[in-house]
């Protein structure tokens, strides 16, 4: 019994099924793709739409809120969100390059893995950059606002406690807690979305690269 004998069996079995008409094949061309690349593209489109929605929402707050601190806070986020949209569009353009799957298998796997890893790394870094920025910026605004305009400030509640040692300690512990929770949440979230897939792709690349020891031709 040789492996080659299987060919006949496979061909015979497939003959029963491989009978799609040209009409049936034409219908398939109008269906939507479910590949990882298309899922990644959908994720990025959702992020772009959400970023634009945030820009609009924050702009409304900037123009219509009565508090200076809130206006200052959200106006900076509008400024951050606009270049972020271009970053996402650039990422989308790079992912579009992956749409051609007629490359050799190893090359294709390496490309997808690299872009997926870069996407996860950048998304993780962006999460922590924004979190640090939010905290520092909001504390700075709260400090300025409390110092300059105590009675008309939205931070009035903190008037007495603000910038005392226990308050600063509370802020440090709160920030550390938030960073720890966000670190584990981001890790869990990206792992749930892409972890299993990435592991599978990396295993395929390892399989392709691996040459067994004592191999003989």
């Amino acid at each position: 019994m040789e492996l080659d004998d299987l060919k006949l069996l496979l061909d015979t079995s497939i003959d029963c099924e491989a009978n799609k008409s040209e009409k049936e094949i034409s219908v398939l061309l109008s269906a939507t793709t479910k590949s990882l690349v298309s899922k990644l593209k959908i994720s990025i489109w959702i992020e772009i739409i959400l970023t634009i929605a945030c820009c609009l929402l924050f702009s409304i707050v900037v123009f219509f809120n009565q508090y200076w601190a809130v206006r200052a806070y959200f106006s900076v986020f509008v400024i951050i969100c606009i270049p972020f949209i271009f970053v996402l569009l650039l990422l989308l353009q790079r992912i579009n390059l992956l749409s051609h799957t007629d490359r050799p298998v190893k090359h294709n796997l390496e490309k997808i893995t690299a872009i997926l890893k870069r996407y996860i790394k950048n998304a993780y870094a962006a999460t922590f950059f924004l979190l640090s920025f939010c905290l520092l910026y909001s504390f700075t605004i709260a400090y300025i606002e409390t110092k300059n305009n105590i009675h008309g400030s939205i931070f009035f509640a903190f008037e007495k406690s603000a910038f005392s040692l226990p308050f600063i300690l509370f802020i440090i512990i709160y920030s550390l807690g938030l960073f720890t929770v966000m670190h584990y949440f981001a890790k869990w979230y990206f792992n749930k979305l892409y972890g299993q897939y990435l592991a599978e792709l990396e295993k395929c690349i390892r399989d392709l690269n691996e040459i067994p020891e004592n191999a003989s031709l």
Partner: peptide, 22 residues
Amino acid sequence: LDHYSYNDIGEVMGISANNVAV
């Protein structure tokens, strides 16, 4: 099984013919 040579398999897979043979 489709009678591709090791060179052709290597080209599709993106690895050397030697690696395919092994």
